[in-house]
Structures are given as structure tokens and as C-alpha cells.
Design a binder for these strands. Structure first.
Length: 657
DNA sequence: ACCGGAATAC
DNA sequence: GTATTCCGGT
């Protein structure tokens, strides 16, 4: 108990900065809860978001529509889509060629990928988008009748694991709570409201992209600190989106599809109360509190960020029973397995950033694959997390990084003009987006335990990488090559963005880890099925856990009653479990790093003497959410009203330029 | 049609 | 950081 409290306190102290604002409920939320979307770029509507918007509107079904499986959509009228997009962005010159470039740009971010062989057909990686960002997206809005039901979550817990309960105080019936405005939905609305502010407050070019501004009832925009407490900034877009299609926008498909209909999978597999892709009207919201962080930026990443409002975890009745949890974990684990998801998707140590293993870019999607080894029967039933992998195991074939060697192409200018100077050679770090190495860079530091072991110092932070390049090595470009698995990468990247402190919280998730390579040889198929399943599995709702146990220790047996909130005990239990896993993972990671590091080192050494720095920072143990979450729930009450208002004001229409 | 690098705009 | 522009290559 004291321990826990400690943590909680620690966490609070660290996290809360400004939020201590007394106003509202008197609760203060962690920074991440307030953090606005930082990047300017992300403030405006993003293309993928726009696409989703179109997809959800019936009126555009002739232009773009869902097709095929999960997340797959076809642009029926490229020019029109481009036009619309251009209109939205006030870029009259937009055309499909450009738009498609933007779309391609998403490949590395894993937001989208191209469905090969099908013209104008792309597919969303809903892991990120849906599960994380748009937990509720309704993919099926096609009027065409394609059932596009929401992609079921990978077999996650076979049971109705209601891990996260719904809303705190308003616990409605299972279904109800999710759909009714008063329920979670309202929370969303709030977010929207707030988000709106950030989105378009300054209506730059477009006149109001979305009429959100007004929405917030006042706006939070003005600094309305008020809402802040309830809304997670980062969810704004998503929320909005949802709202539009959903309840917020009555106009949205009127009847075309049963709103809730099949889309909602109330029970079943999903660990979440409701399917991630709920229908428009109803929307089940709730997704695990995944990370809002994803910021809309798709590239973002935190695997899990509990959001005050949505997070079910916070629910007052956050009660889950161990069995379920186990099942959940197991299932999750398994699914990860089955889908070959990268284990790293759930990094436990925020501080440790590992480059992801990448597959070759192209092939991955193309492989036909289908053999995800079918589920393996887990022998036991309830052993959650143990994966076969052994600690020391180091899969030879998987090197964390894949390097794509390529001669530096001349830049356009260079190509066109003189080649003398090369303003920026593209190198790892620069990349538009691509790897996250840049992101990794600064924050890359190894956890204390981690690095100690390997002894290695591998460093792989961008700086080192960069140095490599700069050193004159052949330009090596590191690219993330995969998509699906790589989600983590994104996450990783993003994480680095976040304050370390924050991360801790966000991180503690529940991340079941999975063995990365299939032990058996079934070689891991990179994507068992990419086309449809990339869903990387949901990011599991993080258990409100507390910090990752210190690797050094053996996970202590569950300590029963640690006083504190009712929420805690379970957490602890899980925590213990995680600890073990984490340890394992840590080991793995180390190995990976080592491997990678070696490679790098080799190169480096070749060129230079090889320096290494070691980021030795000790890893602070991630803060714990502890009972704090519970409290958040309480705060949530009372917010609904605001949300309602906000919701009411939302409007989809966009303006012309 | 599609890909992806580079430069650039915001 | 995201998207837009261009554009050479497949």
C-alpha cells in the first residue's frame, strides 16, 4: 500500500503541472490529458481523417466507399476525391496524383497501405486508427450494403471481457452506456468540443473546416480551461469524426445501415465493451483508452493513454476479475501471436526505444500469407502471458533494423540543376517522416537495467545514427518497413515525443507481450494477413497498473490487499504478471538492441573509432496510475452537459474556401 | 496506376 | 509534422 501510494503521489507530482487548476471538479489531470495537439501540421484536418469522413457519408459513396475487408476502401472517383480534398484544404490544384502522394505518405506511418492489384484501393490500418484513434469508427457506412462490419478484434479475449467498464458514474446498461449520449458519448462530445478548438480555432484558410469552433460551448478554445479537464486533446479529431457520423450528426446516414446493428459486438470477443467500430449512431464508444496519443498523428504513439473521459478503466466499477483478465491477456497474447504482431507494440519501458524490425517494404503486403498458424492452443487456459520465448533468445533472423541501402538520389534540384551542393542529404534523421529514428533520438535511453545487461552500448539514437551517416558512410537509409507490425514503431516514435514523465503513465499498460518471433519456426510471417488483419490488435487497455516492476526483482507474489482503492489490488496483480513479462521482454529487447547495435557499431567502427555513449539514464519507473484513475472517473460526472452542448453544435459541413 | 525522393509550404 | 508539388522510375 504505501508503495502504491507512493507511486501515485510521485506520479502526480510529476505529472501534473499546470493542471492543478482547481476549478472543476477539483481534480487535476495529468499533463497528457491537457496536452494539446502540438504539431501544427496536425492541427488541420488530415487527409486520412478526411477520407474517413467521406467514407462515412453516404453522399460520397459514389466517390469513395468501403470495400472489401476491414478498412479497405476504394476511391471510385479519384478526381472527385481530390477535388473535395483540395476544396477542404483550399488547394484548388489538388489532383489525384498529389492526393495519392499524400496517401502514400501514410504508408510508412502505417495508417494506410495500398491494396495491391486493386486500383484506387487502399486500406486503413485500423489498429491505429480505429483502435487507438478512432475506436469507434464506423467503417461500414457504406450504403452499398457492404456489411463492413467492424473488424472484429482479433480474437481477443474470448469472453466478454468487459475490462473497462463503461462510464464511471453513469454506468448504464452495457449497451446503453456506450451509445447514449449521456454516456460515454458525451465524453466524446466534450472532447470534440475541445478538440475543435484546437483544430480550427484560427481558421486559417478554410473557413471553418468544421464548425467546431463554436462548439465547445464556449470554448475551450479560449483557453477554456474548463473542459480541459475532461477532454483529451488528442482525441479531438477522432472524436469529431465520430460525432459527425454518429449521433452528432443526425444527417449522417440516415438509415442506411443499421446503425448499431451488427457493428456493435457487444459481447463477444472484444475485450472492449463495444466493438471498436460501432455504428454511427450508436457508436459504441469506448475503446480502450487507447491512446489518444496517437495523436492524430498517426504516427503517434502511445500505446495507451488513458483518457480521462473515455477511459473505461476509470470507471467506477472498474472491476474485472482475474480470470477475465487472464483470459484477456492470454487471448491478446495469442492474437498477437497469430497475427504476428510485434511484441514491441507494447513497450514497457518507455525509455527504451528499440527500432523495430522491419520487413521489406514491399513484400510485406503482398505476401500472401495466410497461414498464420492457427491459433495455438494454449495449453493451459489461463496462463496469460508466458510466451515461449526464452529470455536470452535471440532470433537470428530478426534484426531490428533493416537497412535499405541506396545511393543517395539526387534531389530534384540537384537533378535539375547543379549538383554541387547538397543541401540536405537525406539521411536517416531527416526523413520526412519516415523513420522514427529522429523521434527516437533524444529520448532514447536505456533503462537502467536494460543496458546494464548487455553491456552494450548500443546506442541507437538518432544522433548516433546520424553520425553514422554523417560520417560518410554510404548513406544508409533506415526505413521502417513494415506496416503492421510496425505499429509499435510509431508508438515508439511518438513516445519519444512525449515527456518522459507522461509517458510513464501512458505506458503502463497492459501490454501483453508476445514473443516476437515465433519460436517455432513458423517463421513469422510478417503479416499473416495483412490485408485484413493488420489490426494490430488492440492496444490493450492498460491496466491501471503501476509501474513496471523493476526488472531486477522477481515479481513478488501478488500482494493481496494493498489497501488503497479497490482498483488497485488487481492492478498489482497484473502488474506482477507484467513484471515477468517485462523482464523477459526487456531481455529480448536488449538482445535486439545488441544485435542492432552491433551492426551499427560495425559500421561505425569501420568509419570511426566508434564512440558510444551510453545513455545510461536510469529508467525511472513509470508512474503509476493507481487510484488516481479512479478518481478521474468521479470527475467525469458533470461533464455531460457540456458535452451535449458541444455535440449539438457540431456540424459536418465544411466550407468552401 | 503507383512509388517514393526531394524540396517546399504552412 | 503534414501535406503539396514535382517528377523520375516502374
Amino acid at each position: 500500500m504505501s508503495q502504491i501510494q507512493h507511486k501515485v503521489e510521485w506520479r502526480r507530482g510529476k505529472k501534473r503541472r499546470a493542471e492543478k487548476r482547481p476549478g472543476q471538479a477539483g481534480f487535476a489531470f495529468p499533463d497528457w490529458a491537457y496536452k494539446p495537439e502540438s504539431s501544427p501540421g496536425s492541427r488541420q484536418i488530415q487527409l486520412w481523417h478526411f477520407i474517413l469522413e467521406l467514407l462515412r457519408k453516404e453522399e460520397y459513396h459514389d466517390v469513395i466507399a468501403w470495400q472489401g475487408d476491414y478498412g479497405e476502401f476504394v476511391i471510385k472517383d479519384p478526381d472527385e476525391v481530390a477535388r473535395l480534398w483540395g476544396a477542404r484544404k483550399c488547394k484548388p490544384q489538388m489532383n489525384y496524383d498529389k492526393l495519392s502522394r499524400a496517401l502514400r505518405y501514410y504508408y510508412n506511418k502505417r495508417i494506410l497501405h495500398k491494396t495491391k492489384g486493386k486500383r484506387f484501393t487502399y486500406k486503413f490500418n485500423f489498429n491505429k486508427l480505429v483502435l487507438v484513434n478512432y475506436p469507434f469508427i464506423d467503417m461500414g457506412s457504406t450504403g452499398s450494403g457492404v456489411p463492413q462490419s467492424a473488424p472484429p478484434l482479433p480474437s481477443a479475449a474470448g469472453t466478454h471481457f468487459r475490462f473497462p467498464p463503461s462510464t464511471p458514474s453513469d454506468m448504464l446498461s452495457p449497451n446503453e452506456d456506450l451509445r447514449s449520449p449521456g454516456g460515454v458519448f458525451s465524453a466524446v462530445a466534450r472532447r470534440m468540443a475541445r478538440g475543435s478548438v484546437s483544430d480550427c480555432s484560427d481558421g486559417t484558410s478554410r473557413g471553418g473546416e468544421r464548425g467546431l469552433n463554436g462548439g465547445g460551448g464556449g470554448g475551450p478554445g479560449g483557453g477554456g480551461g474548463g473542459y480541459r479537464s475532461m477532454i483529451h486533446p488528442r482525441l479531438s479529431h477522432e472524436s469529431l469524426f465520430r460525432m459527425y457520423g454518429g449521433a452528432g450528426n443526425p444527417n449522417a446516414h440516415p438509415g442506411s445501415r443499421g446503425p448499431l446493428g451488427h457493428r456493435v459486438h457487444p459481447d463477444n470477443l472484444s475485450p472492449f465493451p463495444v466493438s471498436p467500430l460501432p455504428g454511427p449512431g450508436g457508436a459504441g464508444l469506448i475503446a480502450p483508452p487507447l491512446s489518444p496519443a496517437l495523436s492524430l498523428t498517426p504516427s503517434s504513439h502511445l500505446p495507451y493513454t488513458p483518457s480521462p473521459s473515455l477511459s473505461p478503466m476509470l470507471g467506477s466499477h472498474f472491476s474485472f476479475n482475474p480470470e477475465e483478465m487472464k483470459r484477456y491477456l492470454q487471448a491478446h497474447h495469442q492474437s498477437v501471436y497469430n497475427y504476428h504482431l510485434s511484441p514491441r507494440a507494447f513497450l514497457h519501458y518507455p525509455n527504451v526505444i528499440i527500432p523495430q524490425p522491419h520487413r521489406l517494404a514491399q513484400d510485406k503486403r503482398e505476401l500472401a500469407h495466410p497461414h498464420p498458424h492457427s491459433t495455438h492452443p494454449h495449453s493451459g487456459h489461463s496462463h496469460p502471458i508466458h510466451h515461449p520465448l526464452h529470455l536470452g533468445e535471440e532470433p537470428p533472423h530478426l534484426s531490428p533494423f533493416k537497412f535499405k541501402l541506396q545511393p543517395p538520389p539526387l534531389g530534384r534540384k540537384q537533378r535539375d540543376g547543379s549538383q554541387d551542393h547538397h543541401p540536405r542529404q537525406s539521411s536517416l534523421s531527416s526523413g520526412s517522416g519516415s523513420l522514427s529514428s529522429s523521434g527516437l533520438g533524444s529520448s532514447l535511453s536505456f533503462g537502467s537495467d536494460l543496458n546494464s545487461a548487455g553491456g552494450s552500448g548500443l546506442i541507437s539514437n538518432s544522433s548516433s545514427t546520424g553520425s553514422l551517416n554523417s560520417t560518410g558512410l554510404p548513406k544508409i537509409k533506415v526505413e521502417p518497413i513494415s506496416d503492421i507490425e510496425s505499429e509499435e514503431e510509431v508508438e515508439v516514435t511518438d513516445i519519444s515525443d512525449e515527456d518522459p514523465d507522461d509517458r510513464g503513465d501512458e505506458y503502463d499498460l497492459f501490454s501483453p507481450r508476445h514473443p516476437r518471433p515465433h519460436p517455432n519456426g513458423t517463421s513469422s510471417h510478417p503479416h499473416p494477413h495483412d490485408e485484413d488483419l493488420d489490426e494490430d490488435v488492440f492496444k490493450a487497455p492498460a491496466p491501471p497498473s503501476s509501474e513496471p516492476a523493476e526488472p531486477g526483482d522477481t515479481p513478488p507474489p501478488p500482494s493481496p490487499a494493498q489497501g488503497q482503492t479497490k482498483c488497485i489490488p488487481l492492478k498489482l496483480r497484473f502488474k506482477r504478471r507484467w513484471s515477468e513479462d517485462q523482464r523477459m521482454e526487456a531481455m529480448e529487447e536488449q538482445d535486439d538492441k545488441k544485435v542492432r547495435g552491433e551492426k551499427e557499431r560495425e559500421r561505425e567502427t569501420e568509419k570511426n573509432g566508434g564512440m558510444q555513449e551510453n545513455g545510461a539514464g536510469s529508467a525511472p519507473s513509470p508512474p503509476t496510475l493507481g487510484g488516481y484513475e479512479c478518481s478521474l472517473l468521479l470527475a467525469q460526472r458533470g461533464v455531460n452537459q457540456d458535452l451535449h452542448q458541444a455535440t449539438a453544435q457540431l456540424s459536418l459541413e465544411n466550407k468552401d474556401c
